[in-house]
Amino acid sequence: MQHLISSILIYLGIAFIAFGVIGIYRFNNFYPRILVASKVDTVGFLTLMIGVIVRNGFTVFSLKVGLLVIITLCINPLITHSIARSAYYSGYKIRKD
């Protein structure tokens, strides 16, 4: 049972990541691309890590994975924000108001 739930969660996470990868080729502007990539990637990461935690049960392994989840939840939006901010302040503007 535990194995089945973890497998479903892992494949769901991979499906989310695949949607993100499709998204960065589907759009042909920079700002929509970075929007799609950041959101869907973080959701896929979270789902896949929960799947791995369920697979292993309460062990030291799961504790480390939980630490990794917390760190990445802080870091991933920060990196995306930093890239988008760098593009915006450099004057890379794609649409007239």
Binding site: S90, G91, Y92, K93, I94, R95, K96
Partner: peptide, 16 residues
């Protein structure tokens, strides 16, 4: 070279 494409008006670009 740092090449930046933009749609902004020329007069606003002079501030950068």
């Amino acid at each position: 070279p740092q090449i930046i494409y933009t749609v902004e008006d020329v007069h606003k670009l002079f501030e950068h």
